[in-house]
Amino acid sequence: MPTDQLHELYAGLFRVVVQIKRWSHPHEEVDPPCLGVLFCASRLGEVRMSELAQEMLLDLSTVSRHVRTLVQEGYLERTEDPDDRRACRLRVTDRGRQALQRARELRAAALGEVLASWPAKDRDDLTRLLNRLADDLESKAREKAATR
Score class of each variant (00 low, 15 high):
residue 21 K to R: 14
residue 21 K to V: 04
residue 22 R to T: 09
residue 23 W to V: 14
residue 23 W to F: 11
residue 23 W to M: 15
residue 24 S to A: 12
residue 24 S to N: 13
residue 24 S to E: 13
residue 25 H to K: 02
residue 25 H to F: 05
residue 25 H to S: 11
residue 26 P to M: 01
residue 26 P to T: 08
residue 27 H to W: 00
residue 27 H to T: 06
residue 27 H to S: 08
residue 27 H to Y: 01
residue 27 H to M: 05
residue 28 E to H: 04
residue 28 E to M: 15
residue 30 V to P: 04
residue 30 V to Q: 06
residue 30 V to T: 01
residue 30 V to G: 03
residue 31 D to Q: 12
residue 31 D to W: 12
residue 31 D to Y: 08
residue 32 P to E: 07
residue 32 P to M: 09
residue 32 P to Q: 11
residue 33 P to A: 01
residue 33 P to E: 02
residue 33 P to T: 04
residue 34 C to H: 01
residue 34 C to Q: 03
residue 35 L to S: 01
residue 35 L to I: 05
residue 35 L to F: 04
residue 36 G to Q: 15
residue 36 G to R: 14
residue 36 G to N: 14
residue 36 G to W: 08
residue 37 V to H: 01
residue 37 V to W: 02
residue 37 V to T: 05
residue 37 V to Y: 00
residue 37 V to F: 02
residue 37 V to M: 02
residue 37 V to L: 04
residue 39 F to A: 13
residue 39 F to Y: 11
residue 39 F to I: 05
residue 39 F to R: 12
residue 39 F to C: 09
residue 40 C to H: 12
residue 40 C to F: 13
residue 40 C to G: 12
residue 40 C to R: 14
residue 41 A to G: 00
residue 41 A to F: 07
residue 41 A to Q: 00
residue 41 A to T: 05
residue 41 A to R: 03
residue 41 A to C: 07
residue 42 S to Q: 14
residue 42 S to W: 13
residue 43 R to V: 10
residue 43 R to I: 05
residue 43 R to Y: 09
residue 44 L to R: 09
residue 44 L to Q: 03
residue 44 L to P: 01
residue 44 L to Y: 03
residue 44 L to D: 01
residue 44 L to I: 04
residue 45 G to I: 04
residue 46 E to L: 06
residue 46 E to H: 07
residue 46 E to N: 06
residue 47 V to P: 08
residue 47 V to K: 09
residue 48 R to V: 01
residue 48 R to E: 02
residue 48 R to Q: 06
residue 48 R to D: 00
residue 48 R to L: 00
residue 49 M to V: 15
residue 49 M to A: 11
residue 50 S to C: 11
residue 50 S to F: 09
residue 50 S to R: 12
residue 51 E to S: 14
residue 51 E to D: 13
residue 51 E to A: 14
residue 52 L to F: 07
residue 52 L to R: 00
residue 52 L to W: 08
residue 53 A to M: 03
residue 53 A to C: 07
residue 53 A to I: 07
residue 54 Q to C: 00
residue 54 Q to S: 10
residue 55 E to N: 09
residue 55 E to I: 02
residue 56 M to I: 03
residue 57 L to A: 08
residue 57 L to S: 10
residue 58 L to T: 00
residue 58 L to D: 07
residue 58 L to N: 08
residue 58 L to G: 06
